[in-house]
């Protein structure tokens, strides 16, 4: 287990390096003098020259890249002009909010999607199955920014039950906090819920056709036991993969959801920074999200191993069964 962890962690290094390269060159692709772009049209020529010097834009490109890498390793993402503070501070302030949103959405997705998928598989070819299948297909096709707007229209504009923007402070009590969380997390949860239901349904159906399920029944085990012990644990492996994949979608979906609901997370930070042309913030936040995503995938890989003892120690994401 320890060697497995070490090996997988070492594999992250090239990936993160590539991430850094991609972001570095995308931001260098900016048309015109980056310093001029960042300072905006009102800046004077001297200001721009000084700023360019400070950013090291006059150094040779490899020198710039090298400095940039050193800073990254030191977790120094630079300073934001528009917010006038280190980007690390901005991230540390905003990221927890995104985590709250993403985790609530993930929980909703697991609590609703997984049982729905199990139920559909158990009642294959019945009306319940068709209902789950149809709803989940609509779910995965949902433009969530539209769903977000519709939720606002229904629950904030028309019914007036829930707030449409912002995040509630815990100082105002738990309910105020949750009230603000409901709509954005529902919107964000839609696609993963539908996806989980689909994946669990098909993997349960596949698992239920296995010999060991027949064998378990032949031993006289109760049907609930057969389904929830023998089938479910095997069906969970694909779910874990999808949870890992969906995390990427959650972080991406958060950008849209946060914009609609003015939820002060990383997504809103990035979108606002793009508006303000504050590219240092965009660059820092995007790299940070990529790091988080890669780390989550590592965790998923490890969980994989815990759930499925057959995955070999050094093979990484080797197939199940």
């Amino acid at each position: 287990m320890r060697t497995f962890l070490l090996k997988r962690s070492l594999q992250l290094i090239p990936t993160l390096f590539v991430v850094a390269v991609i972001v570095f060159f995308i931001t260098r692709m900016l048309p015109g003098n980056p310093a001029a772009v960042m300072l905006g049209p009102q800046a004077s020529a001297e200001d721009i020259a000084a700023y360019a010097e400070r950013l090291g834009l006059n150094d040779p490109i490899y020198q710039q890249f090298f400095d940039y890498l050193i800073n990254l390793v030191k977790f120094d993402f630079g300073n934001s002009l528009s917010y006038n503070q280190p980007i690390v501070n901005l991230i540390m302030e905003r990221f927890p909010n995104t985590v709250i949103l993403a985790v609530s959405a993930l929980l909703i997705a697991i609590i609703v999607g997984v049982p729905a998928g199990i139920l559909a598989a158990k009642k294959q070819n019945t009306i319940i199955d068709y209902l789950v299948t149809t709803l989940s297909l609509v779910g995965v096709s949902m433009p969530i920014f539209w769903l977000g707007v519709m939720l606002v229209l229904a629950f904030s504009v028309n019914l007036g039950w829930l707030p449409s923007t912002g995040m509630g402070s815990l100082d105002n009590g738990l309910w105020a906090f949750i009230r603000h969380l409901i709509l954005p997390s529902l919107a964000l949860a839609t696609i993963p819920t539908a996806q989980f239901a689909r994946v669990i349904r098909s993997s349960m159906l596949e698992t239920l056709s296995n010999d060991y399920i027949k064998a378990a029944r032949s031993k006289g085990l109760k049907e609930t036991f057969v389904i929830y012990k023998h089938a479910l644990k095997n069906a969970l492996t694909p779910l874990l993969t999808v949870i890992g994949l969906q995390f990427s979608n959650l972080l991406g979906g958060a950008v849209l959801t946060e914009t609609i609901f003015s939820w002060p997370g990383m997504g809103l930070l990035i979108v606002n920074a793009i508006d303000k042309r504050d590219f240092v913030v965009v660059q820092g936040s995007v790299i940070f999200i990529a790091i988080i995503y890669v780390v989550i995938n590592l965790i998923v890989d490890v969980l994989y191993k815990v759930v499925n003892p057959k995955v070999n120690l050094d093979g990484g994401s080797g197939g199940a069964n």
């Binding site: 060991y212 027949k214 006289g220 085990l221 095997n234």
Partner: peptide, 22 residues
């Protein structure tokens, strides 16, 4: 269910697939 595995048991062709791997 009380008959299965108790009065009548069954073993299958392929032991590698009839035991639950997890």
């Amino acid at each position: 269910r009380k008959v299965r595995g108790n009065d009548i048991s069954m073993i299958f062709q392929d032991p590698s697939t009839s035991l639950n791997p997890v």
